[in-house]
Computed example of a mutant assay.
Amino acid sequence: MDAGNSKTDVAVLGADGAVLGAARGGGFRPPAVGADRAVAGLAELVEAALAQAGLAQRGLAQAGAGRVRHLSACLANADLPVEEERLAALLSARGWADTVTVANDTFALLRAGLPDGGPHTGVAVVCGAGINCSGLGPDGRTARFPAIGRISGDWGGGGHLAEEALWWAARAEDGRGAPSALADRLPAHFGLPGMPELIEALHLGDVPAERRHELVPVLFAVAAEGDEVARALVARQAEEIVLMATVALRRLDLLDEPVPVVLGGGVLAARHPVLHEAVLALLAERAPKAVPEVVTAPPVLGAGLLALDETGAPDTAYARLRAHYA
């Protein structure tokens, strides 16, 4: 299971790595609805995937031991160890599998970018709706960040970039800030004549708040055209991505080792040239031995690989699962 801020994927795997059933649904947001309701909201997806695989969830619960050996759940908003523990207990209580492990969804991205035969050592940075980073050292140590927002020192991700683009566009429009094409391009995306109209539409709900993420590709397009305000925002995002990666590498004593730095999430996977090139340049400067890799496969692949790790699957199972999501 990979449950992110914007979508959730559930897959049922055979011991040979075959995907027997799958389902996709909306985002997983315990802070908004509470952990109990968030986990209960996964039931429909789990049951759909189990049914597709020929397994009845009711039968699993009645059997007690269950016919699913292990549930590997990589969850957004499982940002603190105590949250992982609470979510693991709630998932275990559903009776979907014999055993359950819960990890932050950054570990799914990291696992997807690491070789199956090991070593499972490296760092991953997710930049999608939000931003986060995790790392694994050769001695089993982990490096991670709370990634709760501004109170934990975070900057960036699609939601934050959209807000920054709107802030700078509003100030460009009314003269409080530097001129920027964002003042015209952001409202034009919604078919509006200018920032006053977009501000009003967002404030009154005529443009729903959940559509703000659509402004991120607009920001990158304006940056690619040379707009200084937009380019400064993209440069700041690249700085934050590389800063997280290098801090994690340093914590794990890997800064001078040739280890993978896995990049993923919607913003990074899109490989917007201005951002992508800035990230690679900064990594080459600050962590020259790091090996950057962009993962575009769905994060549920990483959760599946972790499940195969847990159950001691053969090498052929890993290859089969990766081929399914290639």
Rank of each mutant, 00 (worst) to 15 (best):
Ala51Ile: 06
Leu282Trp: 00
Ala313Thr: 03
Thr101Gly: 13
Ile151Pro: 03
Cys133Trp: 07
Met1Asn: 06
Arg322Ala: 09
Ala11Gln: 10
Ala103Phe: 04
Val207Pro: 07
Val247Trp: 00
Ala281Pro: 09
Pro119Gln: 00
Leu215Tyr: 00
Thr106Lys: 00
Pro119Thr: 03
Ala209Thr: 00
Gln62Lys: 11
Leu182Asn: 02
Leu87Gly: 00
Ala76Arg: 01
Ala319Thr: 15
Ala278Gln: 13
Ala40Met: 11
Asp139Asn: 11
Leu192Gln: 04
Gly226Gln: 09
Arg86Val: 14
Ala43Trp: 00
Ala108Val: 12
Val261Pro: 04
Gly302Asp: 08
Asp116Ser: 14
Gln237Gly: 11
Arg24Phe: 02
Arg24His: 10
Leu321Ala: 10
Gly149His: 03
Ala181Thr: 04
Pro119Phe: 05
Ala235Ser: 14
Gly177Ala: 12
Thr296Phe: 01
Arg58Lys: 14
Leu280Glu: 15
Leu136Pro: 03
Gly66Val: 11
Ala269Met: 07
Gly265Arg: 13
Pro258Glu: 10
Ala183Asn: 05
Leu204Ser: 12
Ala103Gln: 15
Pro193Asn: 10
Pro258Asn: 07
Gly226Tyr: 13
Asp227Gly: 14
Gly140Glu: 08
Ala248Thr: 14
Asn77Val: 00
Glu164Trp: 08
Thr246Glu: 12
Thr121Ser: 01
Ala238Phe: 10
Ala93Met: 05
Leu71Met: 08
Val274Gly: 01
Gly128Pro: 09
Leu204Asn: 07
Gly117Ala: 14
Gly302His: 10
Val46Asp: 08
Glu173Arg: 09
Leu219Ile: 11
Ala88Thr: 03
Gly266Met: 05
Val242Tyr: 04
Asp2Phe: 12
Ala15Lys: 11
Leu252Phe: 05
Leu198Ile: 08
Asp184Ala: 15
Gly128Gln: 11
Leu71Arg: 02
Gly175Lys: 09
Glu164Ser: 13
Lys289Val: 09
Val229Gly: 13
Gly304Glu: 05
Val82Gly: 02
Val82Ala: 15
Asp79Cys: 08
Ala297Asn: 03
Val125Glu: 02
His324Asp: 00
Glu277Lys: 01
Phe145Gly: 00
Arg69Leu: 15
Ala287Cys: 07
Leu215Ala: 05
Ala323Glu: 15
Leu275Val: 02
Trp155Ala: 14
Leu215Ser: 00
His189Thr: 07
Met1Thr: 14
